[in-house]
């Protein structure tokens, strides 16, 4: 079981969180959605995984490369 930190690929704002810690998430499912450049940009699960921790809240500003969630395979 390896843990991975997911990062934001882009500077923006957390618009909506769609999963909660403990949730089982399928590959390519949305964990949270950022708003940047007038677009809704999802952060997706790269693999089938469990969401361990969310590191941001709705409305929070995030920078490119900032850790936003921890998942476990």
């Amino acid at each position: 079981m390896s843990r991975r930190t997911l990062q934001s690929e882009i500077t923006g704002k957390v618009w909506k969180i769609e999963a909660a810690p403990g949730d089982r998430i399928g590959e390519d499912s949305t964990i949270l959605i950022l708003e940047s450049m007038k677009m809704e940009i999802p952060i997706l699960a790269p693999i089938d995984c469990t969401l361990i921790e969310l590191l941001v809240e709705e409305g929070e500003a995030v920078k490119e490369g900032q850790a936003v969630a921890i998942i476990e395979e």
Partner: peptide
């Protein structure tokens, strides 16, 4: 690809 960085 808008899926990544909104396509920027």
């Amino acid at each position: 690809n808008p899926m990544f960085k909104g396509g920027a």
